[in-house]
């Protein structure tokens, strides 16, 4: 109960007259409306509440920058140039991309804002938005800014890598867009992984330096690749040479036929009849023995099997041709790789 009373009292003292519209955005809009009507005296307290440490509601970075810009603009209108510059610098320090719209603010305010920029040196890079980039036709763009002229080095590197790709090195003043084609220094597509973009700058007006870094993740989107055909094994190929046993088998086959001829004429034939065209069986037996011996010698001296050698060569050539086609298709798919870019929080999860 004591805490509740204290909270009600605190709220009532800090935000009087706000009623239901007590959020930061509402208050900022209210202050902006007062400013539009040049009612600076009523706008200033509201804006000061927003940047006050006692303001009980959440204030986003953008809201705080807007509050500082309007504070600077209000103070410029009432002739408090130095105070205006201080608030403009506060806005620029928090967001180096901060700027005043020439259609909304007066030339005097713009001059003071420019003066604040010259007194403040900061570099910044916007976080990347999730993107799908085809490196063949598209580029990933980084938005970088320096508050005033300075030498700037913009380098991209894979997290953990020593080699960096320099995207820009030179003098910069104000915002700059830097495009990246997705290739690293070796002109190969950036592999999947986490990357950092580091911007370092040295003021040409002040003896000041600043740096900023963002992280992002790259993944590859590539059509599924085909596997190449496996190596041909012995089971896929025909024997290209006769084995020694094959030669021996040929000799035995000849002997088997010769033996069968002699068996038929000498054993199966009737002994009583005294003959069975024995010259015929002898011709067959002799031919079989000679055939077996010639085959045996031929198999041993010329073991190559030309038909099988040619057939195997054709199979190997077919496989090589199919693999070449597969590699070609895979190369085409790889060449069409798309980079999927997402912002990341740091060097690792």
């Amino acid at each position: 109960m004591k805490h509740l009373v204290l909270l009600l009292g605190l709220t009532g003292s800090v935000v009087p007259r706000l009623g239901a519209q007590s959020s930061t955005q509402d208050l900022l809009q209210q202050a902006s409306a007062f400013y539009e009507r040049l009612d600076v005296e009523r706008a200033l307290p509201l804006l000061r509440q927003i940047v006050s440490p006692n303001w009980p509601f959440e204030v986003t970075a953008a809201q705080r920058v807007d509050a500082y810009k309007y504070l600077g603009a209000c103070l410029a209108l009432v002739g408090k140039r130095d105070s205006a510059t201080v608030y403009f610098r506060a806005a620029i320090e928090r967001d180096p991309f901060a700027d005043l719209d020439p259609a909304v603010f007066t030339p005097a305010q713009l001059r003071l804002f420019g003066e604040a920029r010259r007194l403040t040196f900061a570099v910044a890079v916007r976080p990347v938005a999730p993107a799908r980039v085809d490196p063949r036709t598209e580029r990933l763009t980084f938005a970088v800014v320096t508050t005033h002229a300075g030498s700037v080095d913009i380098a991209l590197r894979a997290v953990g890598s020593d080699s960096a790709l320099s995207l820009f090195r030179g003098v910069n003043d104000g915002p700059r867009e830097v495009a990246w084609d997705g290739l690293l220094a070796d002109r190969h597509l950036a592999p999947p992984g986490r990357y950092e973009l580091r911007v370092t700058g040295n003021s040409q007006l002040l003896r000041r330096a600043d740096s900023a870094v963002i992280y992002f993740e790259i993944r590859h989107e590539v059509a599924p690749l085909e596997d190449t055909l496996p190596e041909l094994t012995a089971r896929d190929l025909l024997p290209e040479q006769f084995s020694r046993s094959a030669a021996t088998r040929d000799l035995l086959r000849g002997l088997v036929v010769a033996g069968a001829a002699l068996l038929i004429s000498d054993v199966l034939a009737s002994r009583h009849l005294g003959g069975s065209l024995k010259p015929g069986s002898a011709v067959i037996a002799g031919t079989a023995v000679v055939t077996g011996a010639v085959a045996f010698a031929g198999d041993r001296r010329h073991p190559d099997i030309p038909g099988n050698v040619v057939a195997n060569a054709q199979r190997r050539a077919e496989r090589a041709g199919q693999n070449a086609a597969i590699k070609g298709r895979n190369t085409a798919k790889t060449a069409a790789t798309v980079l999927l870019v997402t912002p990341a929080a740091g060097v690792g999860p």
Binding site: V257, A260, A261, I264, S265, L268, A269, S270, S276, L277, G280, S281, V283, I284, T287, A288, T291
Partner: peptide, 27 residues
């Protein structure tokens, strides 16, 4: 009543040349 035969066959381009010794016996 039995028959038997043996021989060699040479096959080349759709042609087969064979030499066969055969015997039929009937008792």
């Amino acid at each position: 009543a039995v028959t038997a035969a043996t021989g060699l066959q040479l096959r080349r381009r759709g042609l087969t040349l064979g030499a066969l010794y055969s015997l039929e016996r009937y008792d």
